[in-house]
Design a protein around this nucleic acid. Structure first.
Lengths: 206, 206
DNA sequence: TTACAATTTAATAGCTCTATTAATAAACGC
DNA sequence: GCGTTTATTAATAGAGCTATTAAATTGTAA
């Protein structure tokens, strides 16, 4: 049916754990539940990953990389800065749309377990600088030319990430409170994508 | 020392629980821990509140009301729409700044426990409509006069809430990754407040 | 003082969770 | 086939958690 099916229990456990961690976070997911849903004995989870923390970290680290990479460049030299930025916003948006619970997981785990945050700091500190360096140069060039207002790359990225991530962080809340059908919800998501682009581009006008 | 001190253990338990729930969420906080930190026997927590869920809900409901009320009107008739909106953004910002873990708590509990969300839906569905109705009228008047672009009150509010809430949701992460001192962090917060006002106002220009 | 109510505690029942261990089944080289 | 890894399970130790109960302590009104 799906892409897994005949992949062995180790892989199955990994996939099940990923799904459950994304759904309910680390604390609310037990190895017992993972095993039951993966269709194996609970001890097998510990046989492959020794501890629940191990299992979580292998999933978590990979997901963090995915998150950061979504801001990577995508070869579009012949476009205006505005067009490039629009694409960047949309790419980031679509990455989160494809992993809608990821912002929740990151926030939840880094907030409830600050030691995890400290451990990851070294791993991820170098990445953003590399990713944002080119954007920064282009941004400064536009500012120098007077085509956009003065703004740091940090502020710009924070604005984009805030809008995009928050939409999916509050997605279920909004859907429930506003009593939206799945179809209405998807339309709203699509509409917000346009809105985010509008807001960011407008916020840069001199 | 602080404002409590001689308030009885029931109050003390309530305050301690609030602090711990905000810090670590519902699942990661035990009644045992609450009792120890409040300086009483664990059974006393259950004597006053019967269940952990009860204790949580009495805190949670009050906090949700606080969140919503921050968008309430504050009597400023003689100001331009732009000035009024600026004040609204800043009021909302300051409310979250005074309760910086509140966005995390709301998101965490509504996300990990959808049944809580359903239970709260009825209670909170009426409030936003009342709060946002006046804003909507003023907004539409500005649009009709051509002073701002066409936008729904929902989009406007989502933009504001996204920027303000997300700043504090990611506050600790950012502070740690960027290795900011407390002072630097506070400056950054202040700077972002101005940035949010800038972004929202700019995003409304026709 | 005494009776009675409110507060606080010690003890513990009953779960559930993580992790380990020892035993069993499957797979695989030789 | 035989021995040796590898995979899988049943059983359980050990800990922590929620909630209850019964007893002890404190407060209070007659």
């Amino acid at each position: 049916m799906t892409q897994e099916q005949e992949a062995g229990l180790e892989q199955k456990i990994l996939e099940t754990a990923e799904q459950l961690f994304l759904e309910k976070g680390f604390a609310m997911t037990s190895t017992t539940e993972i095993a039951k849903k993966a269709g194996c004995n609970q001890a097998l989870v510990h046989y492959y990953f020794r501890t629940k923390e191990n299992l979580f970290q292998s999933i978590f680290e990979q997901k963090i990389r995915l998150l950061i990479s979504s801001f990577q460049d995508h070869e579009m030299q012949n476009l205006t800065f505005e067009e490039k930025l629009k694409r960047k916003i949309e790419t980031h948006f679509e990455m989160i749309r494809a992993n809608p619970r990821l912002p929740f997981l990151v926030m939840n785990e880094f907030t409830t377990n600050p030691s995890r945050l400290e451990a990851f700091r070294i791993k991820i500190i170098a990445v953003p600088q590399a990713v944002f360096h080119k954007l920064e140069e282009e941004l400064n060039e536009e500012i120098r030319a007077g085509r956009i207002r003065d703004i740091t790359v940090m502020d710009l990225v924070l604005n984009i990430v805030s809008l995009n991530a928050m939409l999916f962080l509050t997605g279920n809340i909004f859907k429930c409170v506003a009593q939206l059908s799945e179809e209405q919800y998807q339309m709203m998501i699509e509409h917000r994508k346009q809105e985010h682009v509008k807001v960011i581009l407008a916020s840069l006008r001199p």
